[in-house]
Design a binder for these strands. Structure first.
Lengths: 167, 167
DNA sequence: GTGCAACTTCAAGCCGACTTGAGGTCAAGC
DNA sequence: GCTTGACCTCAAGTCGGCTTGAAGTTGCAC
């Protein structure tokens, strides 16, 4: 494929058109996410298709992929032609799964929170908010034994009788 | 209020019971999120109620609050007594709003993605994925002008006629 | 009263995703 | 051919949320 000069964008123009800082574009290149031709003087010249690639990257980031993972996703798409339905579907459905998981986690949180609005107690033993350690615990550190008095190998016997707790 | 010795936990025990590393607990103290009494020798001793506070912190982080914001939320709760329904409700509903926004954003993404599975094109001019710059654009950098050929102050006239794009 | 684990502080390091700055080169318009 | 803005590389800095390490102290069991 021949490339007329108007198909090659200098970094500043790509930055303006994509809304992504030139420094970030160079960084993406270091990571191997995008690629640029070079002029004889060493300046970057980007194909227009890079804009599409950048859009893909931004979309992936929005879903919560790290740039590492974005690289993987990009690797699943063909290099030499626009992805066909089948190729694209693989990536898209894995993204969808990810989104669904995130939504699920948020719905769980929301449900517990709703329960708590009613109780107003923040009781360690009753409040669902302290029981967020669902097996399929999504991302994040995860509150593991936050039911204090029921921690593994509890040093002291029993939950003390409910007394007015303080903050 | 008198505190018997069994109500005061050393940092290691609080760490074990909360599942939060001792170093993180010290860090939270630096940020003013939690507080500890001190022994005559200077070691930290935590009230049991700190466990509840930590649970609150973890829950808030899961919703996506920064520790700064967690501090604000904590500031809206009473220091001297367990929050009553009204006090708790303020915090909880602001958290719920936040969750709802996140879910909405994800639903939008998902919808666009679903459209794309069908089209398999990743066309710059047609694909919804490149149009994620909804006004109420949630968190994240936000793909601003990713419709490359329609960037503000477009240097060159028109969208070129659709040619097979490459990756 | 002693031994040792658990604690203390303070400074520095780490991760991801970039940005900033210094010092120098390129390329396009006049 | 010269000017000037856009570009180059490389190193270091930033931010949030911690962790790690060094060097020293405390407190509980025996």
């Amino acid at each position: 494929m021949t490339l007329s000069t108007r198909d090659l964008l200098p970094i500043g123009e790509l930055a303006a058109r994509s809304g992504i800082a030139a420094s970030a574009l160079r960084y993406y290149e270091d990571l191997g996410l995008i690629h640029a031709e070079r002029t004889s003087g060493g300046q970057r010249r980007y194909r227009r298709s890079t804009l599409r690639r950048l859009a893909f990257i931004r979309a992936a980031q929005r879903i919560g992929l790290s740039l590492d993972e974005v690289g993987e996703s990009l690797g699943r798409l063909p290099v030499d032609h626009v992805p066909n339905a089948a190729e694209w579907k693989g990536v898209a459905t894995s993204w969808q799964r990810r989104i669904d998981q995130q939504i699920e986690e948020l719905e769980r949180l929301k449900a517990k929170l709703t329960g708590c609005v009613g109780c107003g107690c923040l009781s360690l033993t009753r409040c669902g908010l302290y029981n967020l350690d669902d097996a399929a615990g999504a991302a994040g550190p995860g509150a593991r034994y936050l039911l204090g008095d029921r921690a593994p190998a509890p040093p002291r016997s029993q939950d003390p009788p409910p007394r007015p707790p303080t903050y």
